[in-house]
């Protein structure tokens, strides 16, 4: 038994000399191979571009998008300027309408369009 163990250890140690010699002998690594591998990596990068990060949109950007973007904003600004101009200059053509709409003589009526709802308003019916 002892002899067998010693034989195994001897074989292990002899084989280890061969393995060590092999471990210390690195195969030659050519620059050409490294260049080929890096070129492959680069062409892979060129074909698969990562998706651009999604930009965070701010409050005003979302508001602008909501009303239809810059063209709508231009129309809104133009209408506001015209409104201010009309108010300031008060052109004669506008005056009759303004007088009618803003005078104290203008009347308005409020009436009940649903008479059936009056049932709920009758007091002491029971």
């Amino acid at each position: 038994m002892m002899d067998n163990n010693q034989t195994d250890q001897g074989l292990e140690s002899e084989l280890e000399n061969f393995f060590m010699a092999e471990r210390n002998t690195a195969p030659a690594l050519s620059d050409m191979l490294l260049a080929r591998i890096i070129a492959d990596a680069q062409s892979q990068l060129d074909t698969v571009q990562p998706e651009p990060p999604i930009e965070e949109t701010g409050f005003f950007q979302r508001l602008l998008d909501g009303i239809g973007g810059w063209p709508s904003m231009a129309g809104l600004a133009a209408a506001s300027i015209v409104g201010v101009w009309i108010g300031y200059v008060q052109p004669p053509a506008v005056e009759p309408f303004a007088g009618y709409l803003l005078s104290s003589d203008a009347e308005s009526y409020l009436y009940d369009v649903s008479p059936a709802s009056a049932i709920f308003g009758v007091e002491g019916s029971s």
Binding site: L29, L33, L34, L45, P50
Partner: peptide
């Protein structure tokens, strides 16, 4: 590398190719 870093590819190549080739 997957995020587009070419320097990472170079580092991996220099690090792993000797083992792969051996």
């Amino acid at each position: 590398f997957a995020n587009g870093d070419a320097a990472a590819a170079q580092a991996l190549t220099l690090r792993l190719t000797p083992r792969v080739l051996g």
